[in-house]
């Protein structure tokens, strides 16, 4: 896990990070949000040992980064916000070089390289020279480089920039799987919708300070926006609406049904997400013509603006 206590990072005449404390448990994904210059990259660089903090402690899986840097860095993978790669190396060679840098045994390197090349969807490009790859492919290659030594902590700075939709989905799945595997992940991104889907918790930085942070449920509650179920009927006759009300209203955790526009109904929802499949099943069982069924809740964008970060960016 990552533990940061009262971290401050100064450059000459500028305080980039001021009094930031946080901890990310294994298996959790923490999203770091904030306008340009808010200190996200400096925070990540300090955790990666690239910038010496002025004050504060950073512990990676219990190892103090300042006192035991080698041990701490062995447990850490860092993906910076630029995808610097060696243009003249092949994809497998590039990953092999970094597997070597992470002191992985020579006999295991090639297997690992093969595993990660496939994992990030570059299986058919293993022998391609890097300068022939697109920007998105390079980004995925750098992600593979970050995770190749199976770090317990991963720091990703803008990992999705320049990646197409499919690439983003693949990257999200890779990261979710990594988190399921017990990695603690800190991810910074400008694409807030991406983070909403991926993160268990998030923090909003502003002028070097962590303005708001918390797990996603609490952050959503912080916005004051309610979570709603939205049902869109393809055929909204009086009879179907009546049936819909009959199924939904009166169930625990579901409020009164309101018609937003023709055929689109919503109801406040305070139950667990685990109940949703059962609920949809019940609606379908009643033979209702369901065109859409989804949850509407506060996203990171709403939290971001609520925290006021957007106004000053």
């Amino acid at each position: 896990m990552i533990e940061i206590r009262s971290l401050r990072v100064d450059y000459e005449n500028v305080t980039a990070v001021s009094d930031v404390s946080l901890a990310v448990e294994p298996g959790r994904v923490f999203g770091l949000v904030g306008p340009n210059g808010s200190g996200k990259t400096s925070l990540l660089k300090a955790i990666a040992g690239l910038v010496e903090p002025t004050y504060g402690d950073i512990k990676i899986c219990g190892c103090d980064l300042e006192l035991n840097p080698r041990e701490a860095l062995q447990k850490l993978g860092f993906m910076p916000d630029f995808n610097a790669v060696y243009e003249n190396l092949k994809v497998w060679e590039y990953l092999d070089v970094f597997a070597t840098a992470y002191l992985i045994d020579r006999n295991k390197r090639l297997d690992l390289v093969e595993k990660w090349v496939n994992q990030v969807g570059l299986g058919d490009k293993t022998d391609a020279l890097i300068h022939t790859l697109s920007r998105g492919m390079r980004q995925r290659l750098v992600l593979a480089r970050t995770l190749i030594h199976d770090p317990e902590v991963a720091l990703l700075d803008e990992p999705a920039s320049g990646i197409d939709a499919l690439g983003r989905i693949e990257m999200r799945n890779t990261l979710k799987e990594a988190a399921r595997g017990g990695k603690a992940i800190i991810i910074s991104s400008h694409i807030l919708s991406e983070l909403s889907d991926l993160c268990d918790s998030a923090g909003i930085m502003e002028k070097g300070r962590m303005v708001v942070s918390g797990d996603m449920a609490r952050l959503r509650a912080y916005t004051g926006m309610k979570t709603e179920i939205v049902v869109h009927l393809s055929e909204a006759s009086d009879e179907t609406v009546k049936e819909l009300k009959a199924v939904l209203e009166g169930r625990p955790g579901i409020g009164a049904l309101k018609e937003e526009k023709t055929g689109e109904f919503c109801a406040e929802f305070s139950g667990s997400r685990d109940e949703l499949p059962g609920l949809l099943g019940a609606l379908v069982k009643e033979g209702l013509p369901i065109a859409q069924f989804f949850i509407r809740e506060a996203g990171l964008e709403d939290i971001y603006f609520k925290a006021g970060a957007g106004k000053t960016s």
């Binding site: 009262s6 009094d19 404390s21 946080l22 797990d215």
Partner: peptide, 18 residues
């Protein structure tokens, strides 16, 4: 002065400062 402030700071915690 800064160190005193640090010493009095809360320990590392799961993110939650709403």
């Amino acid at each position: 002065g800064g160190r005193e402030l640090n010493a009095s700071a809360a320990p590392a915690r799961s993110p939650d400062n709403i």
